[in-house]
Simulated assay, not measured.
Amino acid sequence: MFKKLLLAVDINDPEGTLASAEAAVGLARHEAATLHVVNVVPDQGMAIVGASLAPDHNETVEAAAKRGLENWAQSHIPDDVSAVLHVARGT
């Protein structure tokens, strides 16, 4: 029935994602679906805020979020479930 499933997680609140992660993993197994796991990094909002940050701030934050998501996935997504990790920027 489902071939792709989306699981949104907040790597800053790992306990808050446990129930939905367990349900998504179970459904992905049952349907032999690919689990797409996304973590959204907030943007800076107003341009004046971004101007006060280091030039490589976005890259640093996104790289840290990717590492955090990879660590989270290693702990919560079993090897028998196909997963694709995504880091997005927005609200």
Rank of each mutant, 00 (worst) to 15 (best):
M1E: 06
M1I: 04
K3W: 04
K3V: 03
L6C: 11
L7Y: 00
A8R: 14
V9P: 00
V9I: 00
V9R: 00
I11V: 09
N12H: 10
N12G: 01
D13L: 08
P14L: 02
G16F: 03
T17Y: 03
T17R: 01
L18Y: 11
A19L: 10
A19D: 14
S20M: 09
S20W: 06
A21K: 09
A21F: 08
E22G: 11
G26Q: 08
L27Q: 09
L27I: 10
A28S: 14
R29A: 06
R29E: 07
H30A: 15
E31R: 14
A32N: 10
A33W: 03
T34K: 06
T34Y: 02
L35R: 05
H36M: 06
H36Q: 10
V37E: 02
V37S: 00
V37Q: 06
V38N: 15
N39T: 08
N39Q: 05
N39E: 09
V41S: 02
D43W: 13
Q44Y: 14
Q44M: 13
Q44N: 10
Q44A: 14
G45E: 09
G45S: 07
M46V: 11
I48A: 12
I48D: 08
V49P: 01
A51S: 05
L53G: 09
A54Y: 14
A54K: 14
E59V: 04
T60D: 11
T60W: 02
V61S: 04
E62P: 05
E62H: 11
E62T: 12
A64Y: 07
A65M: 01
R67M: 13
G68W: 02
L69R: 00
N71M: 09
W72H: 00
A73H: 00
Q74M: 07
S75Y: 04
S75E: 03
H76T: 02
I77G: 02
P78C: 10
S82Y: 09
A83R: 00
A83P: 00
A83G: 01
V84I: 11
V84T: 08
H86Y: 13
V87F: 02
A88Q: 03
A88K: 07
R89S: 13
R89D: 15
R89I: 15
R89M: 14
R89Y: 08
G90W: 11
G90E: 13
T91K: 15
T91R: 15
